[in-house]
Amino acid sequence: MADRELTTLLTRLKSTPTLPYAETTSLLSRAKLLLLKLNALTPSPTTPPNLLTLARDIYEQGALGSIRARDAAAFTRYVAQLRPFYELQRYSPNNKDGGERNKITGLYLLLLLTQGLYAEFHSELEALSGEGGLDEVEGDRYLGYPIRLERWLMEGSYDRVWKAMKRGEVPCEEFGVFSEILTSQIRSEIASSSERAYPSLPLASTKSLLFLDSEGAVVEFARARGWTVRDGTIYFPDTSGTSAAGETAEKEKELSLMVIENTLGPYYF
């Protein structure tokens, strides 16, 4: 009775991904109540397999829905709820249907990446590579994507990241949600490296460097970062020279303090 109602709810959720977020959440909370009645809200080894699959699908829809609505907190919650389901199902011999596990995990990895939580990212990766070979993980359409992005970001090959986000390389539309965040992230990365690397840059090449659409956007971006634009060239503020006098004095003081501390420290503190 209750599980039939669940199935109808699930098909409604699945068939209409464009449903407004508010409506999706109301459907989901109804589904969760039903799950609670069926005692399948949290999985246990004794839960019947078909119910397990049903509950997992509900949560997966919830996770995907929250990603579409850009609700990172809700998504993280769903991922945490889904984890025991995956753990239970993966090693049961009569279950070939893995659900959307890789997709959800891939999205989660990407979320961690955009939030700059590299430690969690790598912990998650370690867990993935622990169960199957890392090559297998990298070869996966959904999982390989965030892993490649991370590697390029660390290396500094921003143009590859950019290409991966643009040219229909994104594995599915949910992954596209993160493109925007990633773009602004790599843009500020590039900007901060450029400040140190170039003495000056022509506007035209800055445009291509920062993946901006027009020179007007470049000027706006330059203003936001406090760069000076003169005769079609951007001059970066000399970070090392500006506050040199004050800084050296500060450094001197710090240095002498350090020397005193290192000399006396072991004996008096």
């Binding site: 290396e155 500094g156 090959s157 921003y158 143009d159 590859r160 990365e189 590039i190 901060s192 490296s193 450029s194 400040e195 140190r196 690397a197 170039y198």
Partner: peptide
């Protein structure tokens, strides 16, 4: 891969 990549990487190394 390309000169562009090299440029980004070197810029990052400098930073």
């Amino acid at each position: 891969g390309s000169e562009e990549t090299a440029e980004y990487i070197v810029a990052k190394a400098i930073r």
